[in-house]
Amino acid sequence: MRLFRTLFKKPDSPESNESDILSTVLRITNRDTNGKKDINLSGESTLLLNANDHPFFTDIKSSLKELDKELFMSTMRTPLQGLKSETYNSCWIIFESTNNQKMVDDINAISSHIANLGLGENMTAAVFKGTIGDQSFYCICNYRTSKFYPLVPLGHDMRDNELEMKIGDRIASIGIPLEPHENWYSLSDVPI
């Protein structure tokens, strides 16, 4: 639980601020490089959970509907489809909004709620979709280390490591805590 206290703001705090690690991702938005706004968040994100036989996961759609009623997560994508990963025993909760701040608030709220259910260890990562120039990338927040890293999938399990290095340098330069390179693990089936 200590990890989540450091990761996220208190669920009842009125607005997110940069005291929580996840909100630092908002620094990516419309970053200038030589007068050009070339790196941005695209307004889609997902929370990756490692499922087990807890009732929350056995009927996750109902669980999330209940949560939605309670927390009013306006950015959570509904209807809730494609939640389960085919390859791993994991599931994704997808968020969409033009308001990145609101999206982060919702992820923080749902994360705190899931942690309060005693499922903190089941939260793997929050994944934010972004663009650099014309290229899409993911900015992944690893919940175990509270640090971010970029992922640029090229399909067929290939990645553009060079671009990832460049994005990594950029996000580190704007104060986002960067994961060491040896922990830049892939995610094969991100649904956004």
Partner: peptide, 14 residues
């Protein structure tokens, strides 16, 4: 540094 980037999926090692 590129060589240090792992190939595995995050869920395999968490």
């Amino acid at each position: 540094q590129i060589a240090q980037i792992p190939e595995k999926d995050l869920r395999q090692v968490e």
